[in-house]
């Protein structure tokens, strides 16, 4: 009996609970059997390269896509069976703009507030509040078509908050924005989390963003969660330090470094070799002792640092997040060209 009670309490504490969620598109598995939970009041992040399945996951949680398999509950409501309750509980900022740009900023917010059934007074008060939060008061009467990218993003965040959601989804909230705007949006997100006590789940492929904002981060690659913990714990998994060595020819050096007993993990990215080690400052002298002429390679530079999420990502997926992106950029270019041809 005892166990059941505890289980029930746990359930109410979790704002999001996902079990074995899977999405297939014509046989292609975009999200592969993922399970996780998000606590009340938490900022939870999904970090992953393009095509990892982040947006697909969010769309399933937001009731816009039907899962192929598995279960998900938001605030205790099932995303398949209790769509309307789920929709009432969530706010969402999509990866691509979802504003009516023939309406003004104010009208977009008003439209949203009415759709979510806010009464006249609440509407008026809340629109002012959220506009203040994202500092768009004096742009409220301008058509959205005349907004900059950053202003549109801020308006969308404001809109996502209009109806006092319990959970806010932010799909790549700062994609393509300049660093200054990005930092401002980070501040809004933190403010929301603290002032309005909103649980936030965001996706990103910026390491700093996940590190700075998220209490816990799930690393997602090819539709699978390959690691999930606090940024600090994730970095601790690697333990100690990272030594990055620029070397030529790297293939040869790689074979040799691999044999050292003090190297916990090794990987190579072009001419840079990364070693995960304990007490890095003591290992650099060991590296220097190698007779480079005899070994047949030349060390060009050595860099010692604490692991970042970038290193964690490399550790778990065997590639940098930018590797995945290069091919995606190619893909984007192709679709762009495709569009012009039409």
């Amino acid at each position: 009996m005892q166990i059941f009670d505890e289980y029930d309490i746990m359930k109410t504490l979790f704002m999001i609970r996902v079990e074995n969620l899977t999405k297939k598109f014509n046989g292609f598995t975009a999200v592969d059997n993922i399970s996780f939970f998000v606590n009340k009041g938490e900022i939870f992040g999904f970090l992953g390269p393009n095509g990892a399945g982040k947006t697909t996951t969010i769309k399933m949680l937001a009731t816009l896509l039907k899962p192929t398999k598995g279960e998900a509950k938001i605030c205790g409501f099932d995303v398949l069976k209790e769509k309307e309750n789920v929709r009432k509980s969530i706010g969402i900022v999509f990866q691509e703009p979802a504003l009516d740009n023939r309406l003004t900023g104010f009208e977009n917010l008003d439209f949203h507030a009415r759709l979510y059934g806010l009464d006249k007074e609440t509407r008026k008060k809340r629109i002012e509040e959220v506009l203040n939060l994202v500092e768009l008061q004096d742009k409220a009467k301008i058509l959205v078509i005349n907004y900059s990218g950053g202003m549109q993003r801020r308006l969308e965040i404001a809109r996502g908050l209009m109806h006092y959601p319990k959970v806010l989804f932010l799909d790549e909230p700062t994609l393509g924005l300049d660093p200054q705007t990005r930092h401002r949006i980070w501040d809004y997100i933190l403010q929301l989390n603290q002032k309005e006590k909103i649980t936030i789940i965001l996706t990103t492929h910026y390491m700093e963003e996940a590190d700075y904002l998220c209490q816990r981060v799930g690393i997602i690659d090819f539709g699978k969660i390959v690691a999930l913990d606090t940024p600090q714990n994730l970095k601790n998994i690697l333990g100690g330090d990272v030594i990055s060595i620029e070397v030529f020819p790297p293939e040869r050096a790689f074979e040799i470094f691999k044999t050292f007993s003090w190297v916990k993990k090794i990987n190579r990215c072009n001419s840079i070799i990364n070693l995960n080690v304990e007490q890095g400052e003591k290992k650099i002298p060991l590296l220097m002792k190698i007779d480079q002429k005899e070994a047949g390679f030349e060390i060009k530079s050595v860099n010692l640092r604490k692991p970042t999420l970038e290193d964690v990502f490399l550790y778990f997926t065997g590639k940098t997040i930018r590797d995945g992106e290069a091919s995606q950029e190619e893909k984007n270019k192709m679709t762009m060209r495709g569009r012009f041809r039409r």
Binding site: A62, R87, I92, H112, L115
Partner: peptide, 8 residues
């Protein structure tokens, strides 16, 4: 359309 479709 996404804004409309996700509304309760």
């Amino acid at each position: 359309l996404k804004e409309i479709m996700v509304a309760p």
